[in-house]
Lab assay of single mutants.
Amino acid sequence: MRSPRTRGRSGRPLSLLLALLCALRAKVCGASGQFELEILSMQNVNGELQNGNCCGGARNPGDRKCTRDECDTYFKVCLKEYQSRVTAGGPCSFGSGSTPVIGGNTFNLKASRGNDRNRIVLPFSFAWPRSYTLLVEAWDSSNDTVQPDSIIEKASHSGMINPSRQWQTLKQNTGVAHFEYQIRVTCDDYYYGFGCNKFCRPRDDFFGHYACDQNGNKTCMEGWMGPECNRAICRQGCSPKHGSCKLPGDCRCQYGWQGLYCDKCIPHPGCVHGICNEPWQCLCETNWGGQLCDKDLNYCGTHQPCLNGGTCSNTGPDKYQCSCPEGYSGPNCEIA
């Protein structure tokens, strides 16, 4: 077999650049994923090309098998939009790539799955459409700058595939050579959905506090709520009108309100015997008056200043008058 000629994957630097851009600016990249293909086995019993010639040398006159050299087999892949009637021409609109030389006439790579040499990765940054057309071609490398490479066999497949970690196996069982391969579509990290176009990256910072479920939905951490999980859940009972919080379990009062639940107004400074319904009010309790509710309107009842059976009459805020019984006098009937 001729010395292998290595063929790198098509578009790999571009895919790395796209992945970097997506990581830095995830909101700009609407989708991100990759179409993967792995060659599993190849069977070319006679070492022939599609045109019937030998990959190298002439045929044995007896059994008609190619004798001089085995094929240097590598694969090309073209991925494009779905076609009900597949045409070989036209651009590979979803991507293209190739393997290096991975074997001779016949080989089996099932035991070495995950080997990069027999895998082609086609990254995409558009919403995966699920339906596709795939062209797979086996080629013989001439290892010659003058002699062109020659095609051994080709296969085409049109179908639908959803993103999954599971592989789907396909076979080419007609023509001079048979080969088996597997395909799958996977979303990149933080991308979800059938189109790999739903973005969700767990975070716990100013912009949100959430994890992501298997469908890419945000699940808020304990103590947080809202579409972006950036609204803290305040202390139970915290007034929704007069209290708020920036951290879970907190209850910060608005100006003019106080209390554990921010449901108590702050009265006017200096208010003595008054209450409030709104901040800075001083609504006097019964029998109290004045701007600060510090004037006693029922001095008689509060202090009972009249002595010796005198009768007390309220005459104004903090004022009274005693009517003394016979034989007593003085402001409080204290003089006998």
Rank of each mutant, 00 (worst) to 15 (best):
I233V: 15
V121G: 09
G95R: 00
P267L: 07
L16R: 00
N162S: 08
L307I: 09
S244Y: 02
G90W: 04
R252T: 13
F194V: 14
Y299C: 11
G208A: 07
F179Y: 07
V176I: 09
G52W: 12
V176D: 07
K319N: 10
A58T: 10
I152L: 15
Q168P: 01
C333Y: 04
Y132N: 00
L21F: 10
Y192D: 07
Y261S: 05
H268N: 05
Y255H: 06
E137K: 00
P248L: 04
Y74N: 00
L21R: 01
Y82C: 15
L297H: 09
K264N: 06
Q182H: 13
Y320S: 09
L37S: 01
P325A: 05
P202A: 09
G330V: 14
C238G: 12
N287S: 11
R201P: 11
G216V: 08
N143K: 05
M221R: 11
I39L: 02
V77L: 13
R68G: 15
I275T: 00
Q147E: 08
K218I: 15
S41A: 04
G103V: 12
N308S: 09
C282S: 00
H242Y: 05
H273Y: 10
E334D: 11
P61L: 13
D250N: 05
G95A: 10
N277H: 03
I183V: 10
C333F: 03
E180G: 09
V146I: 09
E334Q: 06
L247V: 14
D69N: 12
V136E: 00
P227H: 04
C212W: 06
K110Q: 15
I151S: 09
E48V: 14
Q258H: 09
A127S: 04
I102T: 13
T315P: 04
S239I: 09
D72E: 13
C212S: 04
N277T: 06
G159S: 02
Y192F: 10
N197T: 14
M221K: 06
P269R: 11
R165L: 14
H242R: 14
T106A: 06
E334A: 05
E285Q: 02
I335V: 11
V86L: 04
N308Y: 15
E137A: 12
Q147H: 10
C54R: 01
K76R: 15
D149V: 02
F179I: 09
A26V: 14
I102L: 14
A336D: 05
C276Y: 03
C282R: 01
T315I: 14
D116E: 05
Y190F: 09
P202S: 10
I335M: 14
R203T: 12
N51Y: 01
Q168R: 12
R165P: 14
N197D: 05
C234R: 08
E38D: 07
S3P: 15
F207I: 05
G195S: 10
T106N: 04
I275N: 00
Q83P: 12
S84A: 14
S41T: 04
L135I: 02
W288C: 01
N118D: 11
C220Y: 01
R203I: 07
F126S: 13
C54W: 06
D72H: 13
E137Q: 07
S32W: 03
Y255F: 05
R64S: 06
C200R: 07
R252K: 07
W167C: 01
C262Y: 02
Y191C: 02
F194I: 04
G33D: 03
G226R: 10
L24Q: 03
C251Y: 07
I120N: 01
C276W: 00
C66W: 15
G310R: 07
C312S: 00
N162T: 14
E36G: 00
E38K: 05
R203K: 05
Q34P: 00
C271S: 00
L21P: 00
R117P: 13
A336P: 08
N197I: 08
C71R: 15
C245W: 07
A111D: 08
L307P: 04
P305L: 15
A31T: 07
I102M: 06
D189H: 07
E278G: 12
Y328F: 15
S98F: 09
K110R: 09
D294A: 04
